[in-house]
Amino acid sequence: MPLRQSFHHITRAGRWVFSKPKNEVCSRNFSNSIPVLNSALRRSSLFDAEKEKQRQAVGRIEKIEVDVVSDFGNELLIMNKDLSTPYDCTKHISKFVGQTAVVALVDSNQPWDMHRPLSEACSLQFLKTTDKNPWIPNNVFWRSCSFMLGAVVTEAFRDDISVILHSFPSPNIQSGSFVLDAYIGLESWIPAPEELRQLSKEMIKLSERELPFERLSVTQEVAEEMFSDNPYKINHISKIFGNHNEVVIYRVGNHVDISRGPMMSHTGLIGRCTIASTHYLKEDQLYRFQGVALPKGHKLNHYAYGILEKRAMLLNSHMIPSEASLSYEPTPEYATEAKEVSN
């Protein structure tokens, strides 16, 4: 089972020994992890079923013209409607482009996931974090980091501790950290440095597996069935359906979560990652996990990175749930993207 394999990587180093036994939160004994596994696998299998259903719904395969724009000239490709993704387009160009592209840009104004099927003829551009103006790929990267943190947090804790993911706010790189809010069934828990380091390691391990971010937009019923064990998500879904027809969900490995997207191409695009700290939000009774990461290939010396880590330790007050109303209203920059989702 894929989940088990990743845990074997953790246990190979041997058992962790913490100074304070009651802070032993990181999961090591995996025979008890079946409930968590079950829940994740259930969502994942529902995701698979929905994905297959949508694939079958395509019917007759039509062709669309995709014009790939790059610095070295344009390339016209004939791709399959509702089946071919921008990643498939990179297979006609080069492996390097497919591996390094963070997100695609359709018709020069709409960010598009690399593994999201294209539905009409368009012009396509591949964006990287090393571009001249990397605003879109940077935010995509930041959002994906929060998502991956969710994947890590759900699996990291012992099974007698309940972990219910709340949400993660829209990416704000200026705040200095990417953020995830979750309910952890622990009272006044302050993570030990080893535990935070272990979480960072998990992120890196997830990155090494180079799992793609799969996207699906589903109906309310399917979404509610998937997240039936998560009251926060049910609440979100109903709020989303106040404004839109469908919910956009993403999957990485076995972890499925709601996000408007877009997400980066695959988890391997993370280079350095540090989960810096956890803060307890009293009003929401949530733990706010904060971290900082750099994309692969971005070099930064250890002192400067240390400054970023230290800043990420401080409470990131961007969109604390109780203060901001989590209404799923898109910010103006994503207005065009949100329009597409609602169509």
């Binding site: 974090t129 090393t130 940077n138 200095g176 994309p295 971005h298 970023l308």
Partner: peptide
Amino acid sequence: NPRSIQNVLLSSA
């Protein structure tokens, strides 16, 4: 590139 992610993070810090 002042807009690259590490520079954005550093300047905001």
